[in-house]
Amino acid sequence: MSKYIAKRLLMMIPTLIGSAIFVFFLLRLIPGDVCELRLAGTGLYADPAEIALCQKNLGLDQPLFVQFLDFLWGYVVFDLGDSMWTGFPVVHEISIRFELSLQVAIMATAVAIMIAIPLGIISAVKQDTWIDYIVRAFSIAGIAMPSFWLGILIILGMLIITQAMWGEPWMPPIDYVPIWEDPVRNLSQLIWPAVATGYRYSAVATRMTRSALLEVLREDYVRTARAKGLMEKVIINRHALKNALLPVVTIIAIEFAFLMGGLVVTEQVFNLNGLGKLFVESVGAQDFNMTQQLVKLVVVIFIFTNLFVDIFYAWLDPRIRYS
């Protein structure tokens, strides 16, 4: 196993180099740069000499290959550089948002698992009954409904309901406080995006759990277990579920990785200062350096998530060996 993990980690290098080349040149194909936007974007008078000076200070006046070599050299010396917009180190800018994104991703995953696994099991066990129909309708609604739209409904609903009940509208906080500083305020802000994204996420996982479990329940070893007179509960929990969870784990893990960098619109709806919002702002501001490093971070998150899934497979199904 350790040999397999080492091999997978080494394979990261060409993946990262490939993505670096791709993102570097792709970003520079888009017209415009951060200095134009910063100095002329407000409509105030912008001195062309000041724009040129800004471009010089950021190295944007250098030939493209020099900029690229400079970018690669940053990895060699473990210096990811500064944000072209704020001037603060990229590592600092990302680390302060990483915590929030990680917390929302964990909470949304927890919400999704708490909804998806029980509902998926019930739906499979009670196949083609009214319970199954309700669960299916609930999960299809979750797939059909974008999480940002659900987020908007949640906020508007809270404003209207609380005003009707107490005379003063209430909505979740819009500025972030770490959970160890003020857990109540932190959770009152983050629980709603976790529910909004967790519901959509659970809908996919519920469907997957149901179909995987139905397939497993038709296997010979399940029939044998039933013939032996094992209790249905034991058959499902101990024998069927573990095998049915393999594709569900894949879905959950990929969604988790997606949430870490892809919660773009939902973060904006709830005004969350996470990686998705930073991504949008960086692209919008033509902050090449920040965007490049964020893409790299997402690549790394996906690589490690997939590695974790592979290892988890081996734990779920002892027949799987990576040697």
């Binding site: 888009i30 017209p31 415009g32 740069d33 951060v34 134009e36 936007l37 002329a40 974007g41 919008g284 501001a285 033509q286």
Partner: peptide, 12 residues
């Protein structure tokens, strides 16, 4: 979007 709009206005 703004950066591309400015590129059109000022450069291209």
């Amino acid at each position: 979007p703004s950066p591309q709009f400015y590129a059109t206005l000022r450069k291209k």
